[in-house]
Design a protein around this nucleic acid. Structure first.
Lengths: 370, 370
DNA sequence: CTACTTTCGCAACGCTGTTGCCAAAGTGCA
DNA sequence: TGCACTTTGGCAACAGCGTTGCGAAAGTAG
């Protein structure tokens, strides 16, 4: 996966031609992403040029534009290696902000992040998803407005909530437990009420995007075990949503033919087995089942790491990590490869809100389809 | 998935900058792909311009180059719509050829295809993968040489064979049943012996690439049920190989916790269950298990279609299609969506060889990482 | 035959990254 | 302290990309 592919070899039917403005914004995004990844330590022009494969002169032109626009700034110099020392560039975090909103079944959490993705401010409120559309929209508008009060440049608002929904259109489907939301154009309604760009995505997808941007890996599965069991996939640095934002349905993977009935109507789903085990207090078994499902993903998708999140995992992180890792280690032994590692996803319960903000930020850095 | 994304939002670490030559070859590939897709009927310049989002003038420049290079030609005119009639362009099939080789456990099949992917000539031979490296390499060289005798422009040779292996490096791993191949640099050896470019891939991946290029869908799973049970994934028009060419391991997806032991050492693999059912003569059950595994993929990846191939399926196509489709239809009812269709993959036993040839052709048309 | 529509190439243009060159700013040694 | 050398990075000229403006070519409609 180290091939230097610069232009999408993707969807032929939808792939579009590239002209100079598109080329320019692509290269600019690459530079911005390197500046972001470098963090406060910064990165030199020559290193940027080397990493993205353009000449130093081209990078100088691009960074000059970025500095003129206030997105980048000089940040000291490196030690000399026998000649003129390199000038270090860094991203200006406060040059832009975005809001991420996590709409859960019974609560709302909103964060304001800067260009680097760091949380600048945060708010929370209790909010029943079943309380009606107007109440929920009003609640989001209230919290977002309070957060952005007095800030200058707001790129937009990202919202992560339980699916199913349509990410591209921003329309909800029959949100599990709240069928009355079916067909509601949440994106459109919020854009009208807030007057800024809004992007909507499944909660797990938002969290996975945040983890991907945060450098957790190029290809991984994020498994969220809270009241239910969900998941999201990052393949080659990109969140895989599928054509209908339906991808990542990890909870209803069948791992026991003709097993116990799940509330989805199927039998032997990972979620049903895990919830049953947790209900019995048998967390070891829950971890083993989770690990079996994870091992299926590893075999199917050849991912690099498995990240665990959610309340149930957070209550016993070592147990779930150890139990799932044991299954993957045995698989590694069988196929003669190093085991794929299992880790707890960082975030501390804010991962969905932070990831939702990345729905707006990521396109700036060439991640996502924006 | 209709967003017109022209430039990859992909792997930030490996994503590379785009300069004018890269831009040019990208747009040229898009035009070539449209010419290929249009077939012998051809396509007009204005339609190309409309599809890829460039101006007609830019398309005229690109097609003028292609005609000068002999890759495209004029092919009559369309009926007028009130003005000058459109000139139709088509791909010149004989402007380039590629060879695809299918190395199976006991046989070799090689096809010579033209630019459109149509088979021009074909050869077969019996060849034991266990007969030793020199014998196998010699066998491939002999058949390929006989095929290309007297042809002008050979783009290269693609080879599809059982995994695991490393697609990027062209190095084999412990090929199932033939551990002596571990570490053998097949690509390098063949390039030296043949003097042309060689690309190596898993047999199922090659077949899936051929199906993707052949217009079978944007996102699908190809499930190959022969002596064993394998698979390959096409996501967003691109074969998903994973970082180590390990993706697509469908046969060893666990669908029955603590089920019967599989020869891979695990328990309850789809392959073990399907083979056992077939061994009992219970094809309905084999189809049901296969369908359950397929339904897992549909839920996890949100794919558009499931394609079945392989000897065992070919022996009872209706049975497997019907049985698997039944599982997917029930899933569709549960989640309130149309069922994902199941079809038999076209190809008639040549799909791996034809797909292997596409390992060389596809990059010309902007598909794959070439 | 005239008016109109549509296709498509030529020429000029703006903007991209590249190349050649040189000033700036360090290190290292005499 | 001074000189040679290395490395960085900006200025200017350049080649090549798609775009724009315009006109010739090739049809239809009346």
């Amino acid at each position: 996966m180290s091939s230097a592919k610069g232009i999408s070899g993707g969807i032929s039917g939808a792939a579009s031609g590239v002209n100079l403005p598109v080329l320019r914004s692509h290269n600019t995004a690459l530079v911005l992403d390197l500046l972001r990844t470098a963090g406060p330590d910064g990165i030199s022009r020559l290193e940027v040029a080397d990493r993205i494969g353009l000449t130093p002169q081209a990078v100088s032109k691009i960074t000059a534009r970025l500095r003129a626009e206030g997105l980048a700034a000089e940040a000291g110099r490196r030690a000399s290696t026998g000649g003129k020392p390199r000038t270090v560039l860094r991203l200006v975090p406060e040059a832009g902000h975005a809001v991420g909103v996590h709409l859960d079944r019974d609560a709302l959490r909103a964060v304001l992040v800067d260009l680097t993705g760091a949380v600048v401010a945060e708010r929370g409120a209790s909010l029943d998803l079943g309380a009606g559309k107007a109440a929920v929209v009003d609640g989001v508008v209230r919290e977002v407005s309070a957060l952005v009060e007095g800030r200058g440049t707001l790129l937009g608002v990202g919202v992560g909530l339980p699916g199913p929904l349509d990410h591209a259109l921003g329309v909800l489907h029959r949100v599990t437990g709240f069928p009355e939301w079916d067909g509601f154009p949440l994106r459109e309604e919020l854009e009208r009420a807030l007057g800024v760009s809004v992007v909507v995505d499944k909660d797990t997808n938002a969290a996975a995007l945040g983890l991907a941007v945060g450098g957790q890996g190029e290809s991984f599965a994020y498994l969220h075990f809270g009241a239910g069991l969900g998941g999201a996939l990052v393949l080659g640095g990109v969140v895989h949503r599928g054509a209908r934002t339906g991808a990542g349905e990890f909870g209803h993977q069948v791992v026991q033919l003709d097993g116990p009935v799940c509330e989805c109507g199927n039998r032997g789903c990972v979620e049903a087995l895990c919830l049953a085990a947790v209900g019995r207090g048998d967390y070891e078994e829950a971890a083993r089942v989770l690990g079996t499902g994870a091992a299926n993903l590893v075999a199917l998708l050849d991912i690099d790491v498995v990240l665990l999140g959610g309340r149930t995992v957070a209550a016993r992180p070592e147990c779930f990590v150890r139990g799932a890792a044991a299954v993957l280690e045995e698989r590694g032994r069988r196929v003669g490869e190093d085991a794929v590692p299992v880790r707890v996803a960082p975030g501390g319960g804010r991962e969905v809100a932070e990831g939702a903000a990345q729905l707006l930020l990521a396109p700036l850095f060439g991640r996502g389809e924006g």
